[in-house]
């Protein structure tokens, strides 16, 4: 048995039951973020999909893959978005290599 149950995604709204005010504030904010603004909901959906992967959140991957399909986003567009997330994630790892280089240079030059 996995810790993650896909059915739990449908229960997400229930977090409000144990803290109504904070839960409602969160969902108000969340729903506002995804409305049409300087970015289109389609662009926001692709950003959400990329972040879902970098956060490795199964619920979010489930939700935003489906959201993308509903918006007519193609699988090629989705995969490119995932690569953007992966590139930033690996870049974030590699850029720390400069710290390592600095330390080596300080200690052993």
């Amino acid at each position: 048995m996995s810790y993650y149950d896909p059915k739990d995604l449908r229960k997400f709204g229930r977090i409000t039951e144990w803290s109504e005010s904070l839960g409602e504030k969160f969902f108000d904010y969340y729903n506002s973020v995804f409305k049409d603004g300087a970015l289109t909901p389609r662009e926001k959906s692709l950003i959400a999909l990329a972040v879902a992967h970098t956060e490795m959140c199964p619920y979010c991957i489930d939700a935003y893959t489906k959201d993308g399909l509903e918006r007519g986003i193609t699988k090629e567009e989705m995969m490119e978005a995932v690569h953007v997330g992966a590139a930033i994630k690996s870049g974030a790892t590699l850029v720390h290599g400069v710290m390592m280089m600095n330390k080596v240079n300080k200690l052993d030059s």
Partner: peptide
């Protein structure tokens, strides 16, 4: 929709098409 999902916003889809 081509699979087991609901259609998105009609206006946005129309614009894309």
């Amino acid at each position: 929709p081509s699979g087991a999902f609901l259609p998105g916003d009609q206006e946005a889809l129309c614009q894309d098409f």
